[in-house]
Each structure stands twice: as C-alpha cells, then as structure tokens.
Amino acid sequence: MLTIRAFDTEAGDRFADGEIPGFVHLYIGEEAVGVGTCAALEDDDYIASTHRGHGHCIAKGLDPKYMMAELYGRAEGYCNGKGGSMHIADVDAGMLGANGIVGAGPPMATGAALSIDYQDRDQVAVGFLGDGAVAQGQVHEAINLAATWDLPAIFVVENNHYGEGTPVEKQHNVDNLSDTAQAHDIPGLTVDGMDITAVAEAVGEARARARAGDGPTLVEAETYRYRGHYEGDEEPYRDDDEIERWQDRDAIDSFKRRLIDRGELTAEEFDDLEREVEAEIEAAVEFAQNADPPAPHEAYDDMFAETPPEIERFATAARTTTDGGERIEESRSSSEPRSDGGRSGGERR
C-alpha cells in the first residue's frame, strides 16, 4: 500500500512537471482493494486490471522501476514504451494488463479462467472493474459466461463512488453494486474497501469457492479515490468535506494504527518503511529518467507473432534511417515527421 501511494504520488508530480506524457489515473486512496485482493491470491493467479491500474500492478508484484520506465515511455518499460500508464502488463507475472476501456477486465478474466478450467490448472483469475464499468454490457456478458460455465473467476468491483465525474447513484439504478450478482445467480457481497483485511478475507473466500469448482463471486469493495479521475481533473462534482471524511478512514493509516496497537509494528518501523519505499520510488524515477527511449523502428515490433511484409517494409526503412537501430533522443522529441519509411507511392526498386 505504501509503495502504491508513493508511486502514484510521484507519478502525479512527474505528470504535473510534464515529464510523463498522456493520461495518468491515480490509485491513491484505493490501495487496500488491490493489495487486499492480491494478498489473497497465489503468485500464478491472474488479474485483469483497469485504466487505474498502477496499484494492481504493484500489488501483483511488478517492479516499480520498470513501471515508471513505462510511464516515461522508455524502452525498458514493461511494454517497451508502447503501452504507458493505461496498458502496463506482464502476462508471465499474471498481470493481464491495465486497460483503457472501461469494463474490459471482466471478459479478460473470464477468458483466463476459461484457460485455467480447460487445462485444469490450480489458479483463479480476477477481473477488476470500477463502479462505472458495472453499467457496461460486456461486464455482464463476462459474468454470465463465467457463471454459466462455473469458471474460477472473481470479479472485484472497486466502487470509488464516481464513474469519471458522475456519482454512482446517477449512473446505476441499483445502489449496492453487489446486488447485480443476483442477476447471474452467483454470490455477491460488499466489503469495506478501506480495510485491507476485509478485502483479503472476502477474496480469499471467493478464491476457495472458485477453486472448489463452484464458480465466480462478485466482491464489491467500497473505497474512494483521493485524486481526480485523471490528473488535471478539476473535480467540480465533489467537495473537500467528502474527501476528508474518506481520508479519515484512510486504509494505510488505519492499518498502521491497528498493527501498532497489536504490537506488530512500531511507529519507528513504519517511518523506516516509508523512507525505504520513498527511496525505492525515487530510484525508479531516476531509472526511468535515465533510461533510453525506444528507437523509432521499435514502433514496428510486436504487432504480430509473425510479422507480415506490410509491416516489415516500414521496420526495415526505419532501421535504415535511424542508424541501425541506435536510440536517438532527438527523433523522439522532435515534432517534425520522421523521414518517410517508404510510405509514398511509386514503384519501389
């Protein structure tokens, strides 16, 4: 949770500084959901994430260094600079990707659960979705399929109470989003998403059910995002009092207090931990800042397992014009169009 908060705080700052391009959606405030969920999973279980995916990545064990490099668009990022904040993935680590399409996680999780079930593997697949995504048709299709086939899937609804800038009650006629599970005849429950122990316990039970062959479960975790929908959001839709009320129940603070009360953590140890995490994130930023950008010709990599000539011709041309693949900073930052990679007509000789 600390790593996520530090990572996203830093990502927000670096975005504000203009170092990180594109969009960033921060997970600050919602840490207990991702961490609680992943704490209840085994290493080789799958998760399919959302556009607000940094927390899920870190909770699943991805390295902040390569995540930050991806946010910076570097070649050493998780996606070699092709994905950015909204598409960080590491399938081998069980992370099926952040996703820029609201509601895309559940079909992905159902698919992973289908593979698991088909090959009789001892895993589960979690599809994260936000409250807004509950209005998406594909979400219900995915839940229906998983439920009908008793697939080992878990759908975790992160109800942060706003779908983009619109409050949940203006987007759904159903108020308790876990009620939607009833339509699919699967268990649906609501837990306190600001309490990591609640989320972990619920997902743990859901995992046991999935592994027993009893099918999917929908877990709604009530939580709150402290930052805007994206960085730069003016937030006209809520007031400071509301934010403060949720911050009073902050997942990190409350868990810290409870651990200290239990004698399992001292305030000094917590401070050390926080410093350690901050150092790790600082190192990640430094790594990302100093990492090489991808060479232009890498734009043509990874379209297919088997690259067709249609793409190969551009790749070849780009490799030639970028000096044999050497990474050239100027070409990335330049607003001038790159030299033409054989795109114009005419017979090629």
Binding site: N176, S178, Q182, L189, V191, A202, A206
Partner: peptide, 20 residues
C-alpha cells in the same frame, strides 16, 4: 438501511440478499 444484508455471509453461508 440500504446497506443491510450485503456481507460475506452471502458467500460463506446461506444468507439471502434483500436488494434495494
């Protein structure tokens, strides 16, 4: 109480759901 009847006993036990 809009929140009543939503807890984990829908998963671990046989509690029913009384929706809104």
């Amino acid at each position: 109480n809009p929140a009543a009847g939503r807890d984990i006993r829908r998963l671990t036990g046989g509690a029913s759901v009384v929706d809104d």
